[in-house]
Each structure stands twice: as structure tokens, then as C-alpha cells.
């Protein structure tokens, strides 16, 4: 059987809220090492990769590797019924066709359980190669969200270029053009405002803003987000989930005409 108890239950809610608009149905894979998900969006342009390590759960038991297909919309509906401070426990039998979510209030005065029907989902697992990225910028997650939102009002695509001067986000459209540059700032008073840039060589790539905007729905999960780029390769947008794992998005670049 599978059983996992997460004291910070709202973390699961944040994860599902972050991906449910990008991916409708997905398989959650459970093994003794943890709880993972890999799924592409419907257009197969981006890939979501979630990893929650077993040691991040208060209790984790998985006797046999299993894949649980879920509608993320339905899962979000169920998780919405959990209190913000509730402890969430997931349970599933090895051969069952449901997964149960149990919500316990911190004062232990309210317990509820919701059963979600599992579904058969044909999904392809992609191999994500280890990549030596040319540039990685780590910036406040809220700043990334703002850049994507602001540029979306100007154009449909963004050119992200990393040079020794900083990382520039440029967009253009009928309205005009916009450039936003973030520079390294590791001495900001507040840690949550720090920006760090790791540049091995300059790189510039073009991406659809629609997807980058969608990834920003993961903002509540982490104070910072990292964008890693290499020439002619998908960008990796990485939200670290403290003490547990990560939620990563990969987006294929656009090719200049």
C-alpha cells in the first residue's frame, strides 16, 4: 500500500494549483524514494517535473511502485476542502482504483476524508538529460511573476538574454517594445530580494510568454525561482520546495524565423 503524511498539507494544494492549468490529467508516481509527477502540457511544448522526497514527509510508506492517474482539476477541488493548516494524508491500496485524502485540523478536532477516483492515463516518460547550463539566474519568484505579467501586455514572446551585464527580458508587439533587465544583487538587505546570476557564457533564447506566465502560478511555493538556459535547449524554471524537493518546468524555445 501507499501512505504519505504531510504536515504542511497546503504545500500539496500549492503544487496542484501551480500545474492544473497546464496539465489536465497526470500520473503521480510513488516509490520508496518519494512522490513524483512528470507531465507535458496538451501541446507538448512544456514539461512539468515534480519531486517530493519521501524523507520530507512525516510518514511515508510505499510497498510497491505505483502510478496513480488523477484529474488535476478534481484533485484541486478536493484539496480546496482542506484547511490551510491541515495535515494531509494520502492513502491508496496497491490494486485499488481510488486514492483517499485525509485532512486533520492542527487541533485534532476535525477530521475529514475525500476519496478521488483514479483514472488510466497513457503517459510518456521523457528522459531529461543532465545539462551544463550557460546561464542561471535566481531571482525572487514574485519578480519573475511580475516580469512575465508585464511583458505579456506588450507581446506574445520574450527574448531572454544573459550577458555579463545582467539578464534582459525583451518583448515587442503592436503597442511597442519593452526591456526589463535584472542585475546581480547579492547584497540586498532582505534575502528575499536577492538576485544571483551564474554566467558561463552569454546566451539568448526566445520563449512563448503564455507558458512562462503559467509557470509563475508556482510563486507561492518558494521565495526564489531559478531560470537556467543553454543554447538551443529548453529553459528550466525551477522552484525549490524546502526540505522536500522541487517543481520544475521546462519550455522548448522558439526558433527565430
Amino acid at each position: 500500500m501507499f501512505e504519505a503524511r504531510l504536515v504542511q498539507g497546503n504545500l500539496l494544494k500549492k503544487v496542484v494549483d501551480a500545474v492544473k492549468d497546464l496539465v489536465t490529467d497526470a500520473n503521480f508516481d510513488c516509490s520508496s524514494s518519494g512522490f513524483t509527477l512528470q507531465a507535458m502540457d496538451n501541446s507538448h511544448v512544456s514539461l512539468v517535473s515534480l519531486s517530493l522526497r519521501s524523507d520530507g514527509f512525516e510518514h511515508f510508506r510505499c510497498d510497491r511502485n505505483m502510478s496513480m492517474g488523477m484529474s488535476l482539476g478534481n484533485l484541486a477541488k478536493i484539496l480546496k476542502c482542506a484547511g490551510n493548516d491541515d495535515i494531509v494524508t494520502m492513502k491508496a491500496a496497491d490494486d485499488g482504483d481510488t486514492v483517499t485524502f485525509m485532512f486533520e485540523s492542527p487541533k485534532e478536532d476535525r477530521v475529514s476524508d475525500f476519496e478521488l477516483k483514479l483514472m488510466d492515463i497513457d503517459s510518456e516518460h521523457l528522459g531529461i538529460p543532465d545539462t551544463d547550463y550557460a546561464a542561471t539566474v535566481t531571482l525572487p519568484a514574485a519578480e519573475y511573476q511580475r516580469i512575465c505579467r508585464d511583458l505579456s501586455s506588450i507581446g506574445d514572446t520574450v527574448v531572454i538574454s544573459a550577458t555579463k551585464d545582467g539578464v534582459k527580458f525583451s518583448s515587442s508587439g503592436d503597442v511597442g517594445t519593452a526591456n526589463i533587465t535584472v542585475r546581480q544583487n547579492t547584497t540586498a538587505d532582505k534575502k528575499e530580494e536577492q538576485v544571483s546570476i551564474d554566467l558561463k557564457e552569454p546566451v539568448a533564447l526566445t520563449f512563448a510568454l503564455r507558458y512562462l506566465n503559467s509557470f509563475a502560478k508556482a510563486t507561492p511555493l518558494a521565495s526564489h525561482v531559478s531560470l537556467s538556459m543553454a543554447r538551443d535547449l529548453p529553459v528550466m524554471v525551477d522552484y525549490q520546495i524546502s526540505d522536500m524537493g522541487h517543481l520544475r518546468f521546462y519550455l522548448a524555445p522558439k526558433i527565430e524565423d
Partner: peptide, 14 residues
């Protein structure tokens, strides 16, 4: 859209 690559052309299927 035009010029948009698929993620599957970068990450091989297992």
C-alpha cells in the same frame, strides 16, 4: 505557433 519547438524533440522518450 510558427517556430515553436516541441519538448519531445529535446527530451527523448523512455
Amino acid at each position: 505557433g510558427a517556430g515553436q519547438r516541441n519538448i519531445t524533440s529535446f527530451f527523448g522518450k523512455h
